[in-house]
Amino acid sequence: MEFAVEHRVVQDLTVVKISGEIDVFTSPRLRESLLDIIDNGGLHLVVDLGEVTFLDSTGLGVLVGIYHRLRARDGSMCFMGVNERVRRVFHVTQLTKIFVLHKTFGDALAAHQASGSSRGTPSST
């Protein structure tokens, strides 16, 4: 599967769908895509990792950096559709302490609406 980043806006959330491997080769493209989304007004991101087949430390570094950039702008970032392989990476690195993982977009939307900014308590649902 080729690496790709697509996004769409639903209400005030920007849903970012990532496909393929997130690694040392694709991380710069991911960072650039996410920065473009933020620069164009996307402050509340729901990142769909359902089609991500691999995630390395370089990719995690990009996601953490984007998270901090969003927080500095009163934005938020959560994840949905995380497969078991990628979920393990989040658990092993203890990033589930800062990142919220949702099963579906409906879950992410409900959490965002309930909190007003989707900065809910991280969970591993």
Rank of each mutant, 00 (worst) to 15 (best):
E2K: 12
F3H: 05
A4W: 11
V5G: 02
E6I: 03
E6H: 13
H7D: 09
V9D: 09
V9G: 02
V10K: 12
Q11L: 06
D12Q: 14
T14M: 06
K17Q: 11
I18C: 07
I18Y: 04
I18E: 06
I18H: 04
G20I: 13
E21G: 05
T26S: 07
T26Q: 06
R29W: 12
R29I: 11
L30F: 09
L30V: 13
R31V: 05
L35I: 13
I37L: 08
I38Q: 10
D39G: 14
N40G: 09
G41A: 05
G41C: 02
G42C: 04
H44R: 08
H44F: 07
L45I: 05
V46D: 01
V46M: 02
V47H: 00
F54Y: 15
F54N: 03
F54A: 06
L55M: 07
L55K: 02
L60N: 07
G61H: 06
V62Y: 02
L63K: 04
L63E: 00
V64T: 08
V64N: 03
G65Y: 02
Y67E: 02
H68D: 14
H68F: 13
H68Q: 15
G75N: 08
C78T: 11
M80T: 05
E84F: 03
V86F: 00
R87V: 01
F90C: 02
H91S: 11
V100A: 05
L101D: 00
L101M: 09
K103I: 05
F105D: 12
G106E: 13
G106D: 13
G106P: 06
D107C: 09
A110R: 10
A110N: 09
H112S: 12
R119P: 01
R119A: 08
R119M: 11
G120V: 13
T121S: 14
T121H: 14
S123I: 03
S124M: 03
T125K: 07
T125A: 10
